[in-house]
């Protein structure tokens, strides 16, 4: 599935909620169901700096697509990580780099986009794009 289709699916899911509590209950559910990250990747190196909760993000590249796993000690942050992984995992570096993150405001998570929230959503997004950029460079180097 393309990134736009995935984000559209997320937007549709969130449009069912009419109050914040339902939305958060869903985020908590997503947090609890985030696939477990391999313990060996919960290392200092994969920690995203500047978050109130600890967030680990690990990326692997199979030569074509990037695969992300993540974990956090806060459940809401895990829920957000789940959304981001659903969107970006299994996509090519180029697709990730050219994708828009507008959908996050559309589902009403803008408050988490403010840098002062320091919950890691912005940092996670930035890190996801950084990985994509690095893998893209690697891909191009191997081609040439």
């Amino acid at each position: 599935m393309k990134i736009e289709d995935r984000t559209q699916a997320i937007i549709n899911e969130f449009s069912n909620f009419d109050d914040w509590m339902d939305k958060y209950n869903y985020l908590i559910e997503l947090g609890k169901s985030l696939p477990l990250i391999d313990e060996q990747y919960k290392v200092e190196n994969n920690l995203i700096p500047g978050c109130q909760s600890r967030v680990w993000l690990h990326a692997e590249f199979d030569g074509e697509n990037v695969h992300f796993t993540a974990d956090s000690d806060a459940v809401i942050t895990k829920g957000i990580a789940n959304l981001l992984i659903r969107t970006f995992s299994g996509q090519t570096p180029q697709e990730i780099l050219s994708s828009s993150t507008e959908f996050l405001s559309e589902i009403g998570l803008t408050e988490h986009l403010s840098p002062t929230r320091s919950n890691g959503m912005l940092s996670m997004l930035k890190q996801i794009k950084m990985y994509a950029l690095a893998f893209k460079a690697k891909q191009e180097m191997e081609k040439s």
């Binding site: 914040w20 958060y24 109130q52 909760s53 000690d73 806060a74 459940v75 809401i76 919950n119």
Partner: peptide, 21 residues
Amino acid sequence: DIHPYDAGTIIDHFGIAVRTG
């Protein structure tokens, strides 16, 4: 064992300003 960040996010939605961290 709820992370203070999680608790603070919900408490904030009740219009209550507490600090977490």
